[in-house]
Design a protein around this nucleic acid. Structure first.
Lengths: 229, 229
DNA sequence: CGCGAGCTTGACGTTGTTCAACTAGAGTGG
DNA sequence: CCACTCTAGTTGAACAACGTCAAGCTCGCG
């Protein structure tokens, strides 16, 4: 990863509730920030480490990765830019609940926690704005939880493919930057199961996929599979 | 349910970040509040309904209940007083993601949303305080998610029993106010599975349970089961 | 005393994991 | 330019986990 000075007031700060911040507050944030480039596979925030920064994902795609006692990985979310990351780790306790790892090349702005906390305590609209963001992440986690708890693997995998198309790649045709194993960790099943399901859907002309290239051919059937569990 | 005027400044408002509120702000909240009593089984907040209130659980135990497309219930959380409820439904969108249902007699203070929102926009410490609460709920949901995704049913059920003892009843001996079916909906498995597991543990002297009375005899074995999944 | 909801038990079938073998492509060094 | 190796992907078979079904039980309540 490689650091560059971050003084670009028009870009990323817009996403961070800029309208609610005074010039003074903006320079506090700017002075506590650094822009970093991460390569595919690099860890941006490490599970168990102290949460000393809030990260703003300016460009790229990351996974929220949880490593459990049995050394099995679990992917909690896949998110693409622009997005504030790592707040949930920060606003209550001091160690990171999960890792954040680049699944493709990323540009990330790391902001020191003390600067964010100072603003939160003084600027109500900024706090409120982050409260809304956190609530929205909370909602998404609950929806994901419900999907996991009540659907069969096929429905889970359908959910993931739809999620990737709608919220990550913004297209029904995309170059998948995840391995089959990662898809399995995201849907919490075995990679064999992901492979079987994808190749069956290929035969049934619901998707078309060769290697990393994926195309959703019949979105309605996919949504039906998702709905039926 | 039965309404009474709520003018008791010393009690419940303490929990709602009272230290950060001015006298004027306190009376805004008080004037927008009403205290209600709910019987076991009554719905306090209804899934899909408009989120017009924040609820403060003053006394009692509630479940967060999600009803899915196939009319199967799913319990997201069991929480006991004192606790702010329903914020997550409110701070981002306008309809309730899940229901909140009394599992035993409850006393609840309902606060109109506009009063809370007005405060959030003006009082940074209040917003920050709610941000911390929401983050903590988020954390708990993630931990629950991880448990669901990576553990076998036995580990899940162990998690739930431990959770009930540590965070709901605050004792290793308790009168369970949930049915076996509700335990199943909480651990997302069949009620038969819950029953089998509990009676096996009874034989192995890990717990003692007759009807609604439950006692954890060997907490270490239980934690081991939870850890091993 | 009888009814019904919640609880309990066992048999059986489905779903999904694990294991083992195999294939294909990408990188490496002679 | 060809082995060699390493990783990701693929397939099928055996096995374990779990849900479903059907039957019987228990206890509180009318």
């Amino acid at each position: 990863m490689e650091a560059t000075a971050s003084k670009n007031r028009t870009g990323w700060l817009q996403e961070l509730s800029l309208p609610f911040l005074t010039d003074e507050e903006i320079s506090i944030i700017e002075n506590a920030s650094v822009r970093l480039a991460f390569k595919k596979g690099e860890t941006i925030i490490k599970q168990g480490g102290q949460s000393t920064h809030v990260a703003f994902l300016e460009k790229g795609i990351v996974k929220f990765n949880y490593e459990n006692d049995q050394n099995r990985n679990l992917i909690l979310a896949i998110v693409s830019s622009p997005k504030i990351l790592g707040g949930a780790n920060l606003f209550y306790q001091n160690n990171n609940l999960f890792s954040i790892v680049a699944v493709e090349a990323c540009s990330v702005i790391l902001i020191e926690a003390h600067a964010i906390l100072q603003l939160l305590r003084n600027n109500a609209m900024f706090s409120f704005s982050l409260l809304q963001l956190t609530s929205e992440m909370f909602r998404k986690t609950i929806i994901n939880f419900v999907s996991l708890a009540s659907k069969h693997k096929e429905g889970r995998i359908a959910d993931i493919i739809i999620h990737l198309a709608e919220n990550v790649y913004y297209s029904n045709v995309f170059q998948l930057s995840l391995t089959r194993k990662e898809l399995a960790e995201f849907s919490s099943c075995s990679s064999e199961n992901v492979i079987m399901t994808l190749s069956r859907w290929q035969k049934e002309k619901i998707i078309r996929c060769s290697g990393k290239e994926v195309e959703i051919v019949d979105i309605n059937k996919l949504k039906l599979i998702s709905k039926n569990g």
